[in-house]
Design a protein around this nucleic acid. Structure first.
Lengths: 145, 145
DNA sequence: AATAATAATGCTTCTAATTCGCATTTGAAC
DNA sequence: GTTCAAATGCGAATTAGAAGCATTATTATT
């Protein structure tokens, strides 16, 4: 059975190689926002002979085909996720590195409003909240890093 | 006469060298959001012997001292600006590369509200609108790139 | 002003993420 | 099955930025 990415690849005219199937599987099953390196690790477990070049090239091809999306959370490397998810913004947990997704309609309205005031149309935006967990009962809760 | 950055350097315990005075002057007079490379060009015109290492190290020192701030607009390099400006977000003109600054109180409220729902306190945020100029009378106005 | 202590400079070299060149292989369509 | 463009894998290149280290300059102290 063909998964979503494989279908999208076909639609985009991208050849379906074994390596791409591997990458597609890993991306589809990822519930986080993995980096290229992390993806490489996961792919290597399925196909130990896959090369990092292929991974990078495929990531780029998938991004150009609007199948995946890359994010830069200021860590010095990109993170990837599927475009098929609902559009959303990110809240990055500064303590654990976890990423939460959200979207608020007011935010959408507001950004269009602000841009319009400058005479612009928003093509895309980046909204990232870098945050720390609220301490409930001060100093009680300790986080692992 | 000592400028703002020079005073802040002194307060932060940073030595005032000729190179730093040069960098301070360039940063103070910049009305845009220059990259390290652009800053290097401008500094070199004042002091042709200044080294890129010194610039990078100084930028880092100034950032650690909260005198300047760096931004990553996804171009593969950082851009810098003074912290002494009012806090603001950025609208990036995708056609010209120009950066406009804005801040909207609703946005501030909204981000706190969203984070709170997840149980977080926002430490910092990044809001960037990537936008194109609205075409007034379609196809009349042509932009230079 | 001369000095001492320490921080900053300017080389050069390194790093790390990502890209590129190129010879070889492979999937897709006939 | 043959064909041919597209994809792979290797290694080398690229690029922003950081680091090591010997030399120099700044600031505080005499």
């Amino acid at each position: 059975m063909e998964n979503q990415i494989e279908r999208q690849c076909r639609e985009a005219g991208l050849k379906l190689t074994g390596q791409r199937r591997t990458i597609a599987k890993v991306l589809t099953e990822a519930e986080d926002h993995p980096s290229a390196n992390e993806l490489y690790k996961r792919c290597s477990e399925i196909d130990p002979k896959i090369s990092l070049s292929t991974l990078y090239r495929t990531l780029r091809a998938l991004e150009e085909a609007r199948i995946i999306q890359s994010h830069d959370f200021g860590e010095g490397h990109a993170r990837f996720e599927l475009c098929s998810k609902e559009p959303h913004d990110h809240l990055i947990d500064l303590v654990s590195g976890d990423v939460h997704e959200f979207r608020h309609p007011d935010l959408e309205r507001l950004k269009q409003f602000i841009a319009k005031e400058f005479g612009y149309d928003v093509v895309r935006h980046r909204v990232e909240l870098y945050a720390v967990p609220i301490k409930q009962s001060h100093a009680k809760r300790r986080r692992s890093r």
